[in-house]
Amino acid sequence: MACGKWAVGKGWLEVNPYEGLKPKKDNPKEIKPFTQEEIRAILAGFDEVAPHYSPFVRFLMATGVRTSEAIGLLWGHVDFQRSEIVIKESLPKDLTGNGYRRVRKETKTGNIRYLPMSLELQALLLFLRPAKVNPDSLVFTTPQGCVIDADNFRCRQWAKVLKAQSIPYRKPYTTRHTMASHAIEQGVPMTGVAYLLGHTDTSMVTKHYGHMVNRPTLPAIPIG
C-alpha cells in the first residue's frame, strides 16, 4: 500500500492499486507450555523408555536453552566452581550440506549468557561428568557417543515418550516456552526472563508472554 502511494506521489501511477487492501493480521500461535504435571510425566517417561536422554531433557526443561545450544554444550562451558553454565555456542545443522553435518557457531542472537545452576541441575551435571574431563567434549551425546541429531531425537524418542504418557504432542522447543512461562509465574521479571532466553531486550518476551504478567481477575458481579 505504501509503495503504491509513493508511486502515485511520484506521478508514475494515477491510482494506487493497493488502496483499500487491509493489512494481514498478525495471528500469533497459542503457546502451550508444559504444566508441572506434564513435566513430571515426561521425565518419568524418559526414565523408563529412553533413560539415556533423560538428563538431556531435564537440562532442556530446567534451562530453556535452544536445542542446538544444548546439543553443542561442551564441558568447558560448565563451571562448577562458579556454579554456572556459559551459553555462547550452538551446534545447528549445516543447511548447505547433506543434512547430517553440523557446524559450531555462535548463538542465534550472538549473545553470551551465564546461567546459574540450581542444586538439582548441578547434581545432574556432576552425575554426568566423566572422571577425566575433556573441556572440548560434548556434555550430551547419543548412546554411541555421537552428536545428537535433533530430528532423530524428536521422532524416535520425544514423540514416543509423549504418546506413551498420553500428553498432547508439542515440539521439544516447547521446553523453552515452559521454562519462560514458569519463570514468569514464579515472579522472575521480564528483563530476567529475556536474559535467560538470550534476548537483548524484552520485546520478544513481552510479545509471547506479556499476557501472563499482572493478569487481572474478573470483577465481582452478583450472578449467584
Rank of each mutant, 00 (worst) to 15 (best):
H77L: 06
W158T: 06
N134T: 12
P135R: 02
Q186S: 14
V78E: 04
H182R: 11
K93C: 01
A131R: 15
D149S: 09
T174M: 09
Y169R: 08
L126A: 10
E185G: 05
P92Q: 05
Y169H: 12
A131L: 13
H77M: 14
D94L: 03
R176L: 05
R104P: 09
P189D: 15
R154Y: 03
A194K: 07
I167Q: 10
L162S: 07
L73A: 05
T178F: 04
L119M: 11
V139R: 00
V133L: 13
I167G: 10
T174L: 07
A159F: 10
P116C: 12
K160A: 15
L91N: 00
Y195W: 09
I167S: 09
Q157G: 01
G99L: 11
P189H: 14
L138H: 11
W75H: 03
L91M: 09
R101A: 05
P135D: 04
E89N: 09
T141M: 08
F140C: 03
I87M: 05
T175Q: 04
L124H: 11
L126R: 14
L125M: 08
Q157V: 12
Y114V: 14
W75K: 04
G187F: 12
S83Q: 15
D94C: 01
P189Q: 11
L196N: 08
T191N: 05
A180G: 05
L95S: 02
S181L: 09
P189A: 14
R170P: 01
A180H: 04
R102Q: 01
H77K: 13
L196P: 01
K93D: 00
S118W: 13
G72Y: 01
C155G: 02
P143W: 07
G192I: 13
L74S: 02
L119C: 03
V147D: 00
S83M: 13
G192F: 12
D94W: 01
H77T: 07
V188N: 07
I112D: 06
I184P: 02
I85S: 01
R104H: 04
Y100C: 03
M179L: 11
A150F: 02
Y169C: 10
L138Y: 07
V161S: 04
P189W: 09
A159K: 15
L74D: 06
L73Q: 03
A183K: 04
Q157C: 10
N134D: 15
Q81P: 01
D136F: 06
A150S: 15
D94T: 02
A164S: 15
